[in-house]
Amino acid sequence: MWLPTDAALQFAPDGRVTPKASAVSVTFSGGGTGALLTGVRDGRTLSLTWPKALPKPTLAGNVATYANVLPGVDLPLKAEVEGFAQLLVVKTPAAAQHPDLASLKFKLDTVGLNVSTDATTGLINAVDLAGQSAFTASTPMMWDSTTTGGGTTSPLLMSKTAAPRVLAATTGGETPAPSDTFVAPSGAKDAQMPTTVTGGNLEIKPDQALLTGASTKYPVYIDPSLAWGERQNWAWAYRSWPNNSYWNTKQDVRVGYESETNGLSRSFQLDTTNLKGAQVTKSTFRAKKTWSWSCTATPVEL
């Protein structure tokens, strides 16, 4: 029986947390020492485990939040129709000083997958025995809560990698909705995080200058999000930083030129195998605009 997809989370009879209906079998921890998250698709399995026992999460829509996994640090997980996303939310300067934030180590368990990281771009890739990508993650990033809406941040204070994370705007006094915490605000100071896969661990090293900087605005968000590989893909080809990987990055799609970060380009890859032999007479591509750097009407070609 076919069911409409629904990423809203619920506690399963075994105590773990699952979405009501998704394209990927995803479960999150219900608390304790088991795997933080497990994804299964076509017999291929990926599990990540937090090094400490987890509290029972609070569920809100498609987000499960594990409070105070370190003092002053929350760990929210978000279920999506095609996968999952995770964050560490460092709420205060005191929390940022915790020694465990110098290097984050998630125990990595897989079945039928080999996981590696690209030394140049930071792209994380898991391939099956046939060499096909099962999941990917763009260069892991972190960002603070600086926004352009409040009028307190100069573009000169943003990091050199900030452009690919400038995605949504908030105005002074606004508090983002829970789902918005997974998207960097416009003007956020951000940094890449070196990532390696060794000894059965996924190790991510947060940028300490951003994490504990005097001008850093808290909370700070640490994002090692993963996505299951599909033929429906998208990526940035960012002119200013051509060696950075933004393949299937968990952010809003952007297109065109904006002067503050010197522009970017965009590409999409869509699976059309189910159209083989068909005569296409009409096709529609829909996108919802959430932000613009200019109020001038300009065409966009697809």
Rank of each mutant, 00 (worst) to 15 (best):
T110K: 13
T92K: 04
L210A: 06
Q97N: 07
P99D: 04
N243M: 13
V220G: 05
T110L: 14
L3D: 06
W2N: 05
D14N: 15
P242M: 13
F106V: 00
T146K: 14
G32M: 10
T38I: 14
V115F: 02
A163R: 12
K189V: 14
T27V: 15
L46M: 15
A64F: 11
S145T: 04
L37S: 07
D252A: 12
L87T: 02
I124N: 01
G173T: 12
T45V: 15
K282L: 09
F268P: 00
T198R: 06
V300I: 11
R266G: 01
G15N: 12
W291N: 05
A67H: 08
W236H: 10
R231M: 11
R231D: 12
R239C: 04
S283H: 05
L70D: 00
L270P: 00
D74Y: 03
K276H: 12
I204H: 00
P76G: 05
N248T: 11
A177C: 04
N114H: 13
A297T: 14
L211S: 03
L129M: 15
W143V: 02
L37N: 02
I124K: 01
L104R: 01
S292P: 00
T92A: 03
M193Y: 06
Y238E: 11
V197T: 05
A8V: 05
L36N: 04
P242T: 15
T261L: 08
P99E: 03
A227N: 06
A227S: 07
T33N: 13
W234F: 14
P19Q: 12
K107H: 03
Y257Q: 13
T58D: 10
S154M: 11
V63H: 10
I124G: 01
A67Y: 05
T284I: 11
L59M: 09
T49H: 04
L210E: 05
S265R: 08
G213A: 12
D252M: 11
T139W: 08
S267D: 02
D223S: 10
V89N: 02
T121F: 03
T58W: 03
S225A: 02
S138L: 02
T171E: 14
A184F: 04
D271G: 10
T296Q: 09
W143H: 01
L156M: 13
A102I: 00
G34C: 09
G61D: 11
W247D: 06
G256H: 08
V183D: 07
A168W: 07
S154A: 14
R44H: 15
S154Q: 14
Q279R: 12
L156A: 14
T298S: 07
E174T: 09
K250G: 02
D128V: 14
S47V: 11
T170A: 03
F84H: 13
A177Y: 12
G30S: 06
P13W: 10
F182W: 04
R16Y: 10
A188R: 03
W228R: 10
T27G: 14
P55N: 01
P4L: 06
V300G: 05
S225D: 03
W228E: 08
T147R: 08
